[in-house]
Design a protein around this nucleic acid. Structure first.
Lengths: 116, 116
DNA sequence: ATAATATACTGTATGTCGTACACTATTGTA
DNA sequence: TACAATAGTGTACGACATACAGTATATTAT
């Protein structure tokens, strides 16, 4: 198997690791209202790379699921859709963080114990 | 939305978080040969709950992908299929751990900074 | 004035892995 | 003899990130 094949395999696994974590990253930034384009930038600055093509549908989906509320701001030169955590979103976010930290610690312990 | 609906939503997100992490958990336990049924038990003891219906297909898939080698042991009362990390598997496992730790730290930092 | 870039968003098909089963076989225990 | 435990195979499905294609227009560069 070539080095490229291996990188492709690793890349696929990494993509799977990102599922769910992007949602946490996005929710973590929306206790204050923010619009999509800005969110892409802010997340990138904080080390979370999310393509706009991934983020906008995700915001739409999270709103549909009741975790976010949105509001158009058409007073600027360009209309912007602002998103904000809903009450449900805050609760779901807290539970996801708790579960993420638990899973993360568990897996880290597994990895560490294997290296010993 | 009812409490049950919210738990269902959270459950779905948690399932997505598990994608990829189960692979890391499994690979972490196969630097020494082990068979499927035993792996289920060992992982459960270490806090990683994996259904046999999930694990056996995963082992098969990982072998197909070249990360594991398997060997039947038919000397016992019951035939057992032992799995062991291949050379490729070791390399992929190391890279996944590195990437997992990076992602994990990044997300944890995001969560922590949002709580401040 | 025109072209290129940046800003800001919508829409949708696809692939992958964990889940959720159904199923099989046989050994060990009650 | 019946049930539980041990050990495995097989497969359809759902959900999310990706990977695009696409739209519109303000801003900047030429």
């Amino acid at each position: 198997m070539s080095e490229k094949d291996m990188q492709e395999l690793v890349g696929g696994f990494i993509q799977e690791l990102r599922r769910g974590t992007i949602i946490i990253g996005v929710l973590s930034q929306l206790s204050e209202a923010q619009y999509g384009y800005s969110l892409v930038t802010v997340l990138e600055e904080k080390g979370i790379q999310v393509d706009p093509g991934t983020l906008y549908p995700l915001l739409r989906r999270l709103e549909k699921q009741g975790l976010l509320d949105s509001q158009w701001d058409t007073n600027e030169a360009r209309p912007r859709k602002y998103y904000l955590l809903s009450e449900l979103g805050k609760r779901v976010y807290e539970e996801l963080c708790t579960e993420w930290e638990r899973m993360s610690a568990g897996l880290q312990a597994l990895i560490d114990s294997q290296r010993s």
